[in-house]
Write a protein that binds this DNA or RNA. Sequence first.
DNA 1: AAGTGGTCTAGACCACAGA
DNA 2: CTGTGGTCTAGACCACTTT
Lengths: 242, 242
Amino acid sequence: MPRTPATKYHQLRDFLRGRIVSGEYEVGTTIPAERDLQATFGVSRSTVRHALRDLTDLGLVRATVGVGTVVIRSRPAVQQSSLRGFTEDLAVRGTPTTAHVVSAVISPPPPHVRDRLELPATEAVLHLVRLRSVAGTPLALMHNFVPASIGIGVDEDFTRPLYELLERDHERFITYGRDSITARAAREDEAQHLDVSPGTPVLNLKRIAYVEHDRPIEYVEAAVRGDLYEYNVTLLRGKERR
Amino acid sequence: MPRTPATKYHQLRDFLRGRIVSGEYEVGTTIPAERDLQATFGVSRSTVRHALRDLTDLGLVRATVGVGTVVIRSRPAVQQSSLRGFTEDLAVRGTPTTAHVVSAVISPPPPHVRDRLELPATEAVLHLVRLRSVAGTPLALMHNFVPASIGIGVDEDFTRPLYELLERDHERFITYGRDSITARAAREDEAQHLDVSPGTPVLNLKRIAYVEHDRPIEYVEAAVRGDLYEYNVTLLRGKERR
DNA sequence: AAGTGGTCTAGACCACAGA
DNA sequence: CTGTGGTCTAGACCACTTT
């Protein structure tokens, strides 16, 4: 027994949801009109609309003026991709990789990095350059930038997943990240590290990762061999706001 | 002037949102009580609550019984990226594009397409080839494959967003999609359409879009000029979802 | 006790879609 | 035209938090 007694709109919502997931209200069909539900259940239209709003938020129905409320899904949504570090991502997909630390220095950031990390002019960053390989074949050359102020040094074990390092040893919990991906030709130095000829197409991945309060904590720029890596993401089609 | 006049709750919501983002209502403080807003703006309490609901959905405020409605952040909460068609995506970002239909035929699908669309051997697909340009410059050459069984023909207006076509005219509501992105060299025919030399790096975007019951409804394969387009996605880290 | 958001009612008019 | 969801009003009682 729920400690909070079910309200009318909860009861109505759960009733309708049951009909939808059981298939009694089939996908593509309309459920009874709001005024019909109002009469059937002896509640006000506001209460009906409150219940329907919840179903809409759950992505089960879609209301259209002049048409009705249509069932668009009968079961819970597929899970959306979540932010993963490169190492984590490849590990999840069963591809063991090795990391070679090319360099790790504390230095003033380049302007575009300082900009993306929203840093004051005086603050230094840890600039980490790593080459990631799979089965001995170079896969990606990555530049990671992390504000020095979080207390990270150059002596950490950077062959471990960086996010694990940030979360376990420095208690910085990443909440979200923005990835930007383009295709471009490999530059001279990248080509050398990646063991390809200059001009070979590479995936250019840029990421800003954020901790709580929307503060940037990491900026990554990576050149990934296009012939060896595929960036995968699952996206839901949501309701548009505004 | 907006073609749809702003409703009262839109006006109130936008007013309050302005106060919040400008800092006049500071984070951690309460905004005026619902009955005060009701009196101040001369609207009903339902209208006030409708406006506040939107602000809650945006993650700007949190209502607590007995306390009030507290400002919890001054910037809109981060939203996960949602699946958008190419046209929709560019439109949202303010880049008007034009589409040129290279070809539109109903034909038996290539094996890898039939595989990805999980089609029986006998079923044909609509194979759509379009060149998308921005300001006269070719941007992407796209191949779209849609099962013929949904009743889509070759005479539709394919310059419109394809998802709009599917959703409005064919009542197929896309629920999610999987994108796979790599970098590769432009092939001869692509180079010609995209007005670049063969071998130029392009973003290779593959997508399977699904409707209810995890049924594939569309397979896309696109070659996008890496120098003109950036694939952007915002991902949350960790679990928790509703 | 006073004030808050949460729920709920019983109406009303509107714009839009479809027959 | 009818029926639909979208908006809006002017009340009401409740459970909860704070004073």
